[in-house]
């Protein structure tokens, strides 16, 4: 279970933003909806443990993540939270398989080739295992970034604007993959977007005003 309780954040300029309490049950699929500038990215960063809120608490799997410090929080994030960005952001100097094993070792887990193979096969890009990112198409790279996010079977899978730069067809395909993968890995899914096209696919919506 994931919850945020009485969280508010103070921006460097002095502007303050408060977020409604939010409770997400295991396996739920949520849409985080909000126009740009509504604090969507801020909430996502607070949820992923890279931005400490000035007030309030974030609980993931009964752990108050901001009571963890430094390394412990980094490892917790690597182990339990998978993140997909709008753009793939793979490490260019490493092969696809190395990018995935990077996610394993940074999270403090052992390198697991079988798991890498399994995830890549599920996403239909197993043949690109030893290729470098520059040799892949944008769509393939997006799949790799999904693979990297689910490689450690995270509790929480967060996608930040995964569809906004894609056409209708590809947007739906990526959304389908995200839902499939979060289900297959028993992860809770939160998709943050201002893209109204994906609205109908979700029953749970947390809207920022």
């Amino acid at each position: 279970m994931i919850s945020i309780q009485s969280v508010s954040h103070q921006y460097p300029g002095g502007k303050q933003i408060s977020f409604r309490d939010w409770q997400i049950n295991d396996g739920d699929q949520w849409l985080l909806l909000g126009a740009s500038g509504s604090g969507k990215t801020t909430l996502l960063h607070i949820l992923t443990g890279i931005l400490q809120p000035s007030k309030g608490e974030v609980l993931i799997k009964d752990t108050s993540i901001y009571s963890l410090t430094g390394r412990a929080l980094d490892q917790f994030r690597g182990r339990h939270i998978g993140i997909i960005f709008q753009r793939p952001h793979l490490i260019k100097s490493l092969t696809i398989a190395e990018n995935l094993s990077l996610a394993q070792t940074f999270a403090g887990l052992a390198k697991d080739d079988k798991r890498i193979e399994e995830v890549l096969t599920a996403l239909g890009i197993a043949d690109k295992k030893h290729a470098y990112p520059h040799a892949l198409s944008q769509g393939q790279l997006q799949r790799v970034s999904i693979a990297r996010a689910v490689i450690n079977k995270p509790t929480l899978l967060i996608a930040d604007e995964p569809t906004s730069s894609l056409d209708d067809h590809n947007a739906m395909a990526v959304l389908k993959l995200l839902m499939e993968q979060s289900g297959a890995n028993q992860a809770t899914l939160v998709v943050a977007t201002h893209d109204k096209r994906v609205k109908d696919a979700f029953t749970n919506t947390y809207e920022l005003i």
Binding site: I50, Q75, G78, L102, F106, G108
Partner: peptide, 16 residues
């Protein structure tokens, strides 16, 4: 810097 930030997201500590 984006690569390095992504590494942090993946669980790498500042020290790494």
């Amino acid at each position: 810097q984006y690569d390095l930030a992504v590494m942090r997201i993946l669980g790498a500590s500042r020290g790494k």
